[in-house]
């Protein structure tokens, strides 16, 4: 079926089978491969995207259901080619990753968290990422990264706009 999806601010006209998950649609039909396939049953969180600004599992939604909403992927929060956001840079600074497979999802979850809560406690961060499994890091440096990003965003000379 033909659908129109608003992905990273751009309307995409797509022809998909209804059974195509939003994840598969993004990866296979739109060519945005930053959302990753981990479990396809909604537990690991590797497929996280922002859906109207909120972190959701793109494997738990069929592509046609996403019509009418704003979808933001990791590609959409990356400022430009080779250019990192404050959050992405913080992940690099603390080495909040190893294999990089869960990383785009973690960055998006951090993004969604910091929009709502610019001054998160450690517990807030732990809770925010608890739906995203990382098998490499034991989470410590991811937590550090999000705390560092929050600190930097708070300390910026001008407010850095995190857009939904």
């Amino acid at each position: 079926m033909r659908i129109n999806l608003d992905i990273n601010g751009e309307i995409r006209e797509l022809d998909v089978e209804p059974r195509t998950s939003l994840l598969d649609c993004l990866r296979d039909h739109v060519g945005l491969t930053g959302a990753h396939t981990g479990c396809e049953h909604g537990v690991c969180g590797a497929c996280t995207v922002l859906f109207d600004g909120v972190a959701v599992r793109s494997c738990l939604m069929f592509a046609p259901q996403a019509e009418g909403s704003k979808i933001t992927t990791i590609e959409g929060v990356t400022p430009g080619p080779g250019e990192m956001s404050v959050i992405q840079d913080a992940f690099c600074e603390t080495h909040g990753m190893q294999c990089g497979y869960c990383t785009p999802a973690m960055v998006l979850v951090a993004h969604a968290l910091l929009i709502d809560n610019p001054n998160p406690s450690r517990d807030d961060i732990v809770d925010a990422i608890s739906g995203n499994i990382c098998r490499c890091t034991g989470y410590a440096q991811i937590i550090d990264a999000i705390a560092l990003a929050a600190e930097r965003l708070r300390g910026a000379n001008r407010p850095v706009e995190l857009t939904k």
């Binding site: 859906f51 909120v54 959701v56 608890s130 739906g131 995203n132």
Partner: peptide
């Protein structure tokens, strides 16, 4: 209930 991401939907 689940996680924030599943409660969102």
């Amino acid at each position: 209930i689940g996680h924030a991401a599943t409660r969102a939907r």
